[in-house]
């Protein structure tokens, strides 16, 4: 259905855009080729395979020029019959925030001014597990864990029923067939409505051009994931789409020193995450909102 709709729509769009760009020749010739390309770029889901390939070549060339590094941009599609799910063992997490920093490095998040983190570890008093109002976000003791507290890492929960997708006025964010909620950074108009709609603070805004030292770029990127972002668009955790679609674990799973983080295919009865759901006492955050997160918190039984 989508396809049919788009052909007509595309035609109208091309007509309009041609008229627009035609009438603005003087304006367009005054700004760079890149701006024009960006301006006319289509929605990712509406591109043909060839268009995607051309786009990727273009991006790789541009990144090389801009950041002086050779990037490998992937647009790999979802693996059939997968639905990614996450598990987090609250009885093991010690609140060291290694996942936070592993994530920043893996996903090319801005380092300083602004610093941007997709995972947030909050500290809660023992005895009141989901009293988020009394959570501490900036705890900073000499040593973790602390006696009276427990820690709860929160990131995008990849809701099956994502309110952020529902509210986006331009379809800039959507749920992939493998359940990952992703953003087309070139389509987002930066209205931040999705941030207002997310109950888990899963989405982060690039308030300025992200800043990453050139020797710290992770050059293995996915178009819908950790490729370099631009200012004034939204981004978020993608469960490391660039890794999980080639059979690797998300960076946070690998970084966790206590093995609190589990990951796997919810559709595969043999997967780790299915084991967790069947054998541990799991719960999901704010289940009353019916967002159906694919992120399960659990305890050692």
């Amino acid at each position: 259905m989508r396809d049919k709709l788009y052909t007509r729509r595309e035609w109208i769009r091309n007509l309009c855009l041609t008229a627009l760009s035609g009438s603005a020749i003087s304006l367009i010739s005054s700004c760079g080729k890149e701006e024009v390309e960006d301006f006319l770029q289509k929605h990712f889901l509406e591109m043909t395979r060839e268009e995607k390939e051309a786009l990727i070549t273009r991006l790789e060339a541009r990144y090389l020029k801009k950041y002086g590094r050779k990037f490998k941009v992937s647009a790999q599609e979802a693996i059939p019959d997968t639905l990614w799910g996450y598990g987090l063992d609250l009885s093991r997490c010690i609140g060291c925030r290694r996942c936070v920093y592993a994530c920043v490095e893996e996903n090319n998040s801005s380092r300083l001014k602004p610093q941007s983190q997709w995972i947030r570890v909050i500290r809660l008093k023992k005895g009141s597990l989901v009293d988020l109002e009394n959570s501490e976000h900036y705890y900073n003791p000499d040593l973790v864990p602390e006696k009276d507290f427990l820690y709860m890492p929160v990131q995008c929960q990849h809701c099956e029923n994502p309110p952020c997708v529902k509210v986006c006025p331009v379809h800039a964010t959507w749920k992939e067939p493998d359940g990952l909620v992703v953003v087309d950074y070139n389509w987002c108009i930066g209205c931040r409505y999705c941030i207002a709609a997310c109950p888990y603070r899963g989405r982060i805004f690039n308030w300025a051009e992200p800043n990453v030292p050139s020797d710290q770029w992770n050059t293995s990127v996915h178009y819908l994931g950790n490729r370099p972002r631009m200012r004034n668009v939204v981004d978020k955790c993608t469960y490391c789409i660039q890794r999980v679609r080639v059979g690797r674990y998300p960076a946070c799973v690998e970084a966790c020193p206590t093995g609190s983080r589990k990951f796997g295919n919810l559709l595969d009865p043999q997967s780790e995450i299915r084991y967790v759901i069947e054998n541990k006492r799991t719960f999901r955050l704010k289940e009353d909102l019916r967002t159906e997160p694919k992120f399960y918190y659990f305890f050692e039984a």
Partner: peptide, 17 residues
């Protein structure tokens, strides 16, 4: 954030949700 992409919101031309 991105006024330059305002046209994404226009019905038919863009992709209005």
């Amino acid at each position: 954030g991105r006024v330059d992409r305002f046209w994404h919101m226009l019905p038919l031309i863009g992709s209005m949700n």
